[in-house]
Amino acid sequence: GPIMLDTYRVIADYSKSSKYELNLKAGDLLDIVEKSPNGWWFCQYDTQRGWAPASYLEPLDGPDESEEPEPNYAGELYKTTKGYTAVEDDELTLQLGETIEVIHKLLDGWWVVRKGEKTGFYPSMFLHSTGERREL
């Protein structure tokens, strides 16, 4: 039978920064083909297909909080596979190979992580699960 794709609305204009992305205009309606946990979603718009940032999309049928896992305040252990330097003041700067605790896996690909006393956003694409849960 036909595959039903979720429809999302673009909330702000976005200019693509690499070849296989889509340019977005506020109000455009996109069909989502694949939701990658790194925050890039493969979308269809008219006859075009490409990647769009989930952070610029909202579901047509209201908030998608049901899709988003609840925060896990105990934390799940991950290792950084790449360093990242914070750009916004709510982000964390980490080096390659650091172990951190993931508290909230947000759909836009920016996860809330904790390192010691500090908590902030980090790109999920630079994290790899160690498969362990933190012992309390």
């Binding site: 690499s18 992305e21 890039w40 493969f42 952070s55 610029y56 836009d108 956003f121 694409m125 630079f126």
Partner: peptide
């Protein structure tokens, strides 16, 4: 076939959306 997703982190949500989430 689906191309690989971009290798760079996606942009953070637009500023007004970010406030709404907090």
């Amino acid at each position: 076939s689906i191309k690989q997703p971009p290798q760079n982190p996606p942009p953070r949500p637009p500023a007004d959306m970010r406030r709404k989430r907090l």
